[in-house]
């Protein structure tokens, strides 16, 4: 069943069109990879889906579980199950990770009309998840991402993904700034979360990440459009021959 349908999406930033009519469909349980050179519009797409301000949608639509996503406030999208793992997770001094997780989780539950999670249940859940991701307890007591290494920041993103249980996870350049060991831990975390109901959209420059998170479908983006889609072997092809061949196609 289609989870996310992007139809002929056109997006502007400050009078300049970045996406020129992008179409793609992500079904439940699928893993999609979006590849493409800098400036091809990969991050713009992820921001528009999540509802980041500053983008003007001039045409097209985005349906999420059949509903008009563009009509929803960003926090509403989060509560409905859209999760964006950031390329550069921000630091929030003075707000402990634990407090942040609980505040956010309860905000989402409230928006869905569910009761707040009791503290013991919450703690139990956080402990389980953080253990599997190799996140030490004292990291949860520190300010959100404050003084975290690149690897720790990304694991914190995966931790939130596991806790909030979204149905669509968009991973924006998860591999940037990670060494190979950190990448493996983060990718293992992501793989553990993959389920028949949950879809993943992995945005990356490099094929390397896709050795760890294996996609069902690979899309190549160039100049604001999807110029080619295919199976996982498309990524390998790109790795060998580069993006140049697609520049003209756009």
């Amino acid at each position: 069943m289609a989870l996310l349908e992007v139809k002929d999406l056109k997006v502007r930033v400050e009078e300049r069109e970045i996406l020129h009519g992008l179409t793609m469909t992500v079904n439940e349980g699928e893993i999609h990879a979006i590849m493409g050179p800098n400036g091809s519009g990969k991050s713009t797409l992820s921001h528009v889906i999540a509802g980041k301000p500053g983008y003007e949608v001039t045409d097209g639509q985005i349906l999420f579980k059949g509903e008009d996503l563009l009509e929803m406030a960003p926090e509403e999208r989060a509560a409905k199950g859209v999760f964006l793992a950031f390329q550069y997770p921000v630091e929030i001094p003075g707000v402990t990770t634990m407090n942040f997780l609980r505040t956010a989780l309860n905000a989402q539950r409230k928006a869905r009309g569910e009761s707040e999670l009791m503290v013991p249940d919450f703690l139990k859940k956080v402990r389980e998840v953080s253990k599997s991701l190799n996140i030490p307890q004292d990291m949860l007591k520190r300010g959100v991402n404050v003084g975290f290494s690149g690897g720790e920041k990304k694991r914190n993103e995966v931790l939130q993904m596991a806790l909030f249980e979204p149905s669509l996870c968009i991973l924006d350049e998860m591999d940037s700034g990670l060494d190979i060991d950190a990448l493996r831990i983060a990718a293992d975390g992501v793989n553990a979360l993959h389920s028949p109901k949950r879809a993943m959209v992995v945005i990356t420059h490099y094929q390397r990440l896709l050795n760890y998170i294996v996609p069902d479908i690979v899309h190549v983006m160039s100049k604001g459009r999807v110029v080619k889609s295919g199976g996982k072997e498309l990524a390998l092809e790109l790795e060998a021959s580069g993006y140049a061949q697609f520049e003209d196609a756009a």
Binding site: K52, P74, A78, A79, Y88, V90, F100, Q108
Partner: peptide, 14 residues
């Protein structure tokens, strides 16, 4: 910063 606010909002906060 707008980025910090958006990060929180993406996690479900108003």
């Amino acid at each position: 910063s707008e980025d910090v606010l958006f990060y929180c909002i993406q996690r479900g906060l108003s």
